[in-house]
């Protein structure tokens, strides 16, 4: 299997790996075909991703895609992450072999889920606040 140097670099030195306890949003995605699982945690300040962490079980490309995905998410407005595409992850890895495109799919899915989780929590908390005012 031929992997890009960028992919290998992310696999060897994953950025933002680990768990985050005091997160503002968390999301998981799995790929049933192979059991790969990625979980992303977001810390959000003023609507932007202030910190991001991931935990991933999977093959080398899925680990590398998680690392690249975390860099793409860092600093971005959360709303933008709702439409984060597989193609963007693949591009950040300088490409994926056709047999490994699931790596980008599972990571993009996990980041979008984490973004939705953050927005849903914010909505619930603003509804709760509004409720108290009545």
């Amino acid at each position: 299997m031929n992997y890009s140097e960028t992919l290998i670099n992310h696999f060897r030195h994953p950025r933002n790996a680990g768990m985050m306890r005091d997160h503002d949003g968390v999301g998981e995605a799995t790929f049933d075909g192979c059991g790969d699982l990625a979980r992303f945690y977001l810390k959000v300040i003023d609507g932007r991703v202030a910190d991001v962490r991931f935990q991933t079980y999977g093959c080398g490309p899925t680990i590398a895609a998680s690392s690249a995905g975390s860099e793409l998410a860092a600093g971005r407005p959360v709303a933008e992450l709702l439409t984060l595409s597989e193609a963007e992850i693949t591009a950040a890895l300088d490409g994926l072999p056709a047999e490994r495109v699931h790596a980008a799919r599972v990571v993009a899915g996990a980041i979008r889920t984490a973004a939705r989780d953050y927005l849903a929590r914010r909505e619930r908390s603003s509804e709760a606040k509004a409720g108290r005012h009545v």
């Binding site: 994953p14 790996a17 680990g18 998981e28 699982l37 979980r39 935990q55 991933t56 079980y57």
Partner: peptide, 10 residues
């Protein structure tokens, strides 16, 4: 290192 990345192991 791989286990430290894995949610299953945690």
């Amino acid at each position: 290192r791989l286990r430290s990345l894995s949610p299953a192991a945690v």
